[in-house]
Design a protein around this nucleic acid. Structure first.
Lengths: 142, 142
DNA sequence: GTGATTGCAAATCTTTTGCACTAAA
DNA sequence: TTTAGTGCAAAAGATTTGCAATCAC
């Protein structure tokens, strides 16, 4: 659990984003960007940080997630009012959201196609298209 | 501002949904379902109710919106964490969301096509597909 | 050193809840 | 009556903010 290869990786990301590499930011970056892509809430990340002996306050976790998102290192996914998920995968893709479990899962960008998109209203342009495929438990057959 | 034709309309909707037609529910239903489709927050609807001389508490507005949503009279649209919009249009359609103004606008169901939808994970089925086309102000040219 | 960052606790904001009161059937 | 619905104020979550202490450069 205590530091090795990917340390550099996290450091690079922070520096590339112009964020001063503090102990807290480095630790959180390592939790977020080591391993595979993930969807995480502030509360969850805070729990992981504490479990990994990284002393960091919940407020700092929130601030850091927002800074990372602003820097393009993370993407915020809104599926339920009153709760934010942060996605370490910032490439073009969409999501399954299981309403019964609260689980969020990626749909690769090329596995879903949005067509016939209407022109944006005057004075605006499209920033992003978010597709949420909402799932519910499949009770028995059909 | 004081009652005429669409009164019946609101009453029918409530009775059809098995909701007792109280003064507050009738008043809110009229504000919601008279006129064209709309996207509204609890806070906004409460403001409209007060402006229309309908004495109703914010708590009741929240409860009523949730009951209406449960009954299929409304649909909840989540675009920003920590704020819920309710859509009086419950037919199949999607949304533009202007991030600078917070404005939500319908995209008719047949003006946007989602294709190549992957199969839902085992044990689940698709409840709904939500597409949010996020807009930002178009600054000058290209 | 100096300004950016952090921690803490308090503040904010939206939404829900408990309970006595009121109104619909 | 009898039960569902309402209002109020308090509670509950999630997130943010103010400010003194701390850390990176």
């Amino acid at each position: 659990m205590t530091g090795n290869r990917p340390y550099k990786h996290a450091l690079d990301r922070l520096q590339g984003a112009g964020l001063r590499p503090t102990r807290q930011r480095l630790g959180l970056a390592r939790l977020l960007f080591e391993g595979c892509d993930r969807h995480i809430t502030a509360e969850q990340l805070h729990g992981e940080a504490l479990a990994a002996d990284l002393r960091v306050s919940l407020a700092t976790v929130y601030n850091t997630l927002n800074q990372f998102t602003g820097a393009g290192l993370l993407r915020e996914v809104v599926v339920e009012s009153g709760k934010s998920y942060f996605d370490t995968n910032v490439s073009d893709h969409h999501h399954f959201f299981d309403e019964s479990t609260g689980r969020l899962e990626d749909i690769p960008g090329d596995h879903l196609l949005v067509q016939k998109l209407p022109a944006p209203p005057p004075g605006t342009r499209i920033a992003r298209v978010d597709v949420i495929v909402r799932l519910i438990a499949d009770e028995a057959a059909e």
